[in-house]
């Protein structure tokens, strides 16, 4: 059951990622990226990361991607122009990419002992309480630094985008 669920969501993630790369319209790419993020949230759940799955949905899929879609719709640029690729890039690129991925999968498979398997529910310290405890004790300084970073980002974004587009 675990493996079937993993394979389903992994397949959705990979298909969406491929779609992100091959689509020429940014809004199609954005929707594919949302698909990747949603299926990754399920994979996190399987790994016991309840909090991180919810954060993935709320922050990534629910906030960051809305911002992307909003900007794409605001600029409304349309499709990307076709670029001329060199002949060998056009014919050898895809097989080389597939070869590279296969090689990497092979190496990962060999380096890691395959006996270890992931079972749903075996990892329990991914709930909101344990994450929160750790975030506010061991990782308090990084947490505060990120809040300052976000403040800087807000100010920067407002300064950059303040003028009206005509």
């Amino acid at each position: 059951m675990d493996a079937v669920l993993f394979l389903v969501f992994a397949a959705i993630a990979v298909v969406c990622a491929v779609n992100l790369v091959i689509q020429t319209h940014p809004i199609a790419s954005a929707l594919s990226l949302i698909g990747v993020m949603g299926s990754l949230a399920f994979v996190y759940l399987q790994l016991g990361g309840q909090f991180i799955a919810a954060a993935q949905l709320v922050v990534y899929a629910g906030a960051i991607m809305v911002l992307f879609v909003f900007v794409i719709m605001l600029l409304n640029e349309g499709k990307e122009r076709k670029v001329k690729m060199r002949l060998w890039v056009r014919w050898a690129g895809l097989p080389l990419l597939a070869l590279f991925i296969a090689l990497m999968a092979f190496i990962v498979q060999r380096v890691l002992p395959a006996q270890q398997s992931v079972k749903f529910g075996a990892f329990t310290s991914g709930d909101a309480q344990s994450i929160g405890t750790k975030l506010f004790t061991a990782y308090l300084l990084p947490f505060e630094v990120t809040s300052v970073l976000i403040l800087i980002a807000i100010v920067g974004a407002i300064v950059l985008a303040r003028k009206e587009i005509d």
């Binding site: 990497m104 990962v108 992931v118």
Partner: peptide, 17 residues
């Protein structure tokens, strides 16, 4: 259960894409 390496392979594939 799911072999652990599959997660890393998925991660690698997504990163490459």
């Amino acid at each position: 259960g799911v072999p652990f390496s599959w997660y890393l392979i998925l991660s690698a594939v997504l990163f490459t894409l």
